[in-house]
């Protein structure tokens, strides 16, 4: 059995905050712990920030969110209407002290899997809910 959440937004930083909160609430309802929800909220926030930044340059600017929870795994897909970009999916941390470039690194640290498709306009992130999380909540 699966549960899902979908929404579409216009490209605005305030909408990115709104979407971030919606995704965190969805993760919480799915049974993730407070600490896991904090990780998911931050990873989603980074992806949403990128979607708004990249999508704003497009003629029809906007982004959409789709969350699915099935088999103890949360899948988050965020799509924007921008022209895309070349995501560098390195696990290496940017040099300490660099002011930009931390977002994708953080997403990869906080989620089990992060992939980009469609020239960077679609990011898909996955995070498994662990059994310990359920025990902590019991």
């Amino acid at each position: 059995m699966s549960t899902s959440y979908r929404a579409a937004f216009t490209s605005d930083f305030r909408n990115a905050s709104l979407a971030r909160k919606s995704i965190a609430s969805f993760a919480s309802v799915c049974g993730f712990t407070e600490s896991e929800v904090a990780d998911i909220r931050l990873a989603a926030g980074e992806a949403l920030g990128n979607a708004v930044e990249h999508g704003r340059s497009a003629r029809s600017s906007g982004f959409s969110v789709r969350c699915t929870f099935a088999d103890d795994e949360l899948i988050i897909e965020i799509r924007d209407n921008g022209h895309g970009f070349s995501a560098i999916l390195s696990d290496a941390a940017p040099p300490p002290g660099r002011e930009r470039g931390l977002g994708i690194f953080l997403m990869r640290q906080l989620m089990d899997q992060v992939t980009y498709a469609h020239n960077g306009t679609l990011v898909r992130m996955a995070r498994k809910r662990h059994v310990e999380a359920l025990e902590q909540r019991a």
Binding site: R41, L42, G45, E46, G49, G97, R98, E99, L102
Partner: peptide, 16 residues
């Protein structure tokens, strides 16, 4: 309540 990479960037710049 919440801090992301752009917020960290602001702190890094101020530190420098």
């Amino acid at each position: 309540e919440f801090l992301d990479s752009t917020g960290l960037g602001a702190l890094i710049g101020a530190h420098r």
